[in-house]
Write a protein that binds this DNA or RNA. Structure first.
Length: 497
DNA sequence: ATGTCC
């Protein structure tokens, strides 16, 4: 039986995979059209993850596709083990949304939008590369403050020193990540140890990347908020989120940049060496699925490194939002902005699953706690559920959703976007540059790119409507607002040849 | 995702 034949559909929206008589099957979220997008390797990765030691549940989301060890677009739960691969190479890659008090009409004029693009690009660099690409009005963070950000995340002190409104920390899924022993001191010691071992060449250059987007699928996007409907539930959620219908908002997607990459790769390498040295069998024979039992020095080290990367990503996002707000204020003096939410889709968190604590690894998956969830008790979202930020593509729009009680079936998780349909190489080979650029022009969506990267064109992503239909039919979440793109900030250097 | 080949 081939891997894809192992999918058993149990309804319009969910399917299961048999993975052995005694285990809970994999939960698959997706309409039939979506399930057909899962290729054999993606399914095989899900099965390997499900059969891996200590794993009690795996959820495959509609945006799933092949990843490092585990599919991007999956949730893996373990009460006893931690898995670096199912967090991924970009630790705490996340979404954030800034609501501005600007009516949509004020940015209708293309010249205003062009000025905004320039003002934002002067502050927030895009692209990979050594350190932050030089930008005229970026913010330089020195070594001492960089260390403080890595160790304590978006603390009051860090926010104040970086010009981040401290109240934004309350609008974070997690504003700070602690060490394995729940202290920040151990994180500081771990960071010192890593630097002593020279695990961070060019540390200061990596710190300079605070406030930058990076490349690949990372982006900043100016949106107009369009509430889904005027039903009381939608209005209550929109109100709690601080969303304003018909007004401008700014959506950001980025992660922990070079430092998270260095931390993740270092962990993969070290654990793979230990598995080889000790002759431990690899789950599904895949070295990308190495793991560590909780309580072991290896697990402690991974949790610490993940937290360091996660704190960088958090401060990076908040600084980007502060810089974007500053750019808006330069072009449209007097405007104000407030953070709707900052939420990750590449992180492992300790949560309660089936009444006991477990590490929930979300790899290209978004936490989805509904109204009344115990973990939201002391947050602004206790009565509504927190905002779920899902990038679709600039032409289909992006979505703000909120979880329903049905999200329990997916370990309180949803997808993290549309998911890739075409591989990058194939997209570059098959898509016509002129057609891609003209499609943006026709939709009146401006970009900072001279040429929009073909491997990031909307056509390279799955049908966003079908993905959202999968989420709603499975009764995981409902849409609160659609975000309509007005301009995109992205690394366009690859398409420039 | 990534100092995308030190």
């Amino acid at each position: 039986m081939s891997a894809s034949e192992a999918i058993i559909a149990t309804g319009e929206a969910t399917g299961i995979l048999p993975t052995g008589a005694s285990r809970t099957p994999i939960t698959v979220i997706g309409t039939q059209a979506i399930r057909e997008t899962f290729d054999d390797l993606c399914i095989q990765q899900a099965i390997n993850s499900r059969n891996a030691p200590g794993v009690t549940q795996v959820v495959l989301n509609p945006d799933a596709h092949c990843g490092y060890g585990a599919p991007i677009g999956c949730v893996m739960v373990s009460p006893s083990h931690i898995y670096p691969g199912p967090v991924g190479v970009d630790i705490k890659c996340s979404m954030s949304l800034l609501q501005l008090d600007i009516p949509a009409e004020e940015i209708e004029d293309r010249r205003v939008r062009r000025a905004l693009i320039d003002a934002i690009c002067e502050r927030t660099p895009t692209g990979a590369g050594r350190g932050a690409r030089h930008v005229a009005k970026g913010r330089v963070v020195d070594e001492r403050l960089g260390v403080e950000a890595l160790v304590s995340g978006a603390s009051l002190s860090v926010c104040q020193q970086m010009g981040i409104p401290p109240e934004w920390a309350e609008r974070c899924e997690d504003s700070a990540h602690l060490a394995h022993d729940h202290t920040a001191d151990s994180l500081a010691m771990r960071l010192e140890e890593l630097r002593f071992r020279n695990a961070f060449p060019n540390f200061c250059q990596k710190i300079h990347q605070l406030g930058s987007y990076g490349g690949g699928n990372h982006f900043g996007e100016c949106e107009v908020v369009e509430l889904r409907d005027r039903e009381p539930d939608t209005l209550q959620a929109a109100n709690a989120f601080g969303l304003r219908d018909g007004h401008v908002a700014f959506l950001s997607h980025c992660g922990s940049r070079g430092i998270g990459h260095q931390l993740a790769m270092g962990q993969f390498r070290e654990l793979q060496c230990k598995f080889a040295e000790w002759g431990i069998p690899l789950p599904g024979g895949d070295r990308e699925l190495v793991y560590a039992p909780l309580g072991s020095p290896e697990a402690d080290a991974y949790i610490d490194d993940m937290s360091l990367g996660a704190n960088f990503a958090t401060v990076n996002h908040l600084m980007i939002n502060a810089l974007v707000l500053e750019a808006f204020q330069e072009v449209l003096p007097g405007c104000t902005g407030s953070l709707v939410y900052f939420i990750s889709h590449n992180i492992a968190r300790k949560e309660i699953v089936d009444h006991r604590p477990a590490w929930v690894h979300r790899k290209g998956a978004t936490r989805a706690f509904p109204a009344g969830h115990h973990a939201l008790a002391d947050t602004p979202f206790a009565e509504t559920g927190h905002p779920i930020l899902l990038p679709g593509n600039p032409q289909a729009g992006s979505s703000v959703m909120v979880a329903t009680q049905g999200a329990e079936k997916s370990c309180y998780s949803v997808n993290h976007g549309a998911g890739r349909r075409l591989g990058r190489k194939r997209a570059i080979r098959e898509l016509d540059q002129k057609a891609v650029d003209q499609s943006f022009d026709a939709a009146d969506i401006l970009t900072n790119c001279r040429q929009y990267p073909r491997d990031e064109a909307p056509a390279t992503y799955k049908d966003f409507e079908e993905v959202l239909r999968s989420v709603e039919k499975a009764d995981l979440a409902r849409e609160v607002a659609r975000l309509r793109a007005k301009f995109v900030i992205k690394d366009g250097s690859a398409a420039d040849d």
